[in-house]
Amino acid sequence: MRAGKVRAVALAAGLTAVTGREARTEELPGRVRVTAALPERLTEAARRSLLTVLADADRYGHDVTARGAVVWAEIDCGRASTRDVNSCS
């Protein structure tokens, strides 16, 4: 398993643990995006834990929609070969 994918799996596990909601992983060209719905309320300790988990991502953010709040994070994938430049697997 390539490093980007390993990091994404760890990130998904961390988001699931902090939010109590299953994180979703999506492979995109050159990166893996991990998203998780946020509960209505987070304790201060949970907020700190969430930021600690997100710090391992290459970039992250927070979206608020009519259906609730979602946190997302992306992991960039390395280039193992010229044939496989966009794959994280």
Rank of each mutant, 00 (worst) to 15 (best):
A57G: 15
G4S: 06
L38W: 05
R47E: 12
V85G: 05
G61A: 04
V6Y: 07
P39M: 08
A10L: 12
R7N: 14
T16F: 12
V34C: 06
R47H: 12
E26N: 10
A8H: 01
R7W: 11
A12I: 09
R31E: 13
E26V: 15
A69W: 02
T16N: 08
A8Y: 02
A37P: 04
G78P: 14
V53T: 08
A23K: 00
R2I: 04
T52S: 08
L11C: 09
T16R: 01
W72R: 11
D63T: 04
A45T: 15
V6G: 00
A55V: 13
V71H: 01
V70K: 01
Y60I: 00
A12M: 04
R67C: 07
V18Q: 01
W72G: 02
A73D: 07
N86F: 14
G30F: 09
S87V: 10
N86I: 09
A69G: 08
V9Y: 03
V71N: 00
L15D: 06
P39I: 01
A10W: 02
W72M: 04
A12W: 01
T25N: 04
R41W: 04
E40W: 03
C77F: 06
E27D: 03
K5N: 06
D63Q: 08
E40V: 00
A69C: 06
G68T: 09
S87L: 11
L42E: 01
P29E: 08
D84H: 07
V53N: 11
D56S: 14
R41Y: 03
G20A: 03
G4I: 03
E74A: 07
W72I: 08
G61S: 06
L50W: 04
L50S: 09
V85Y: 15
A36K: 00
V34R: 01
D63W: 02
L38T: 11
R33F: 09
L54D: 07
R79Y: 13
V9L: 11
R24T: 13
G68E: 06
A55S: 15
A23Y: 03
V6H: 08
G20S: 05
E27L: 02
A57E: 13
E27G: 05
R47F: 11
A12K: 10
R59M: 05
A36R: 01
R21K: 11
P39G: 07
A46R: 13
A36C: 09
E44G: 15
V70Y: 05
P39S: 09
D76C: 06
A69F: 03
A8I: 01
E74Q: 08
G61T: 03
N86D: 13
D63G: 05
V71Y: 03
G14A: 12
E40G: 12
A13P: 00
L51V: 09
V6L: 13
D76Q: 10
R21G: 02
L28C: 06
A57P: 11
R67W: 12
L15M: 12
T35G: 01
V32N: 01
V32C: 08
L51A: 13
C77W: 10
D76I: 01
S49T: 11
G20C: 05
V64W: 13
N86R: 14
R83W: 02
P39R: 09
T43W: 05
L28K: 10
V70W: 09
A3G: 03
R2N: 12
R7L: 10
T16H: 07
G20T: 03
A3M: 08
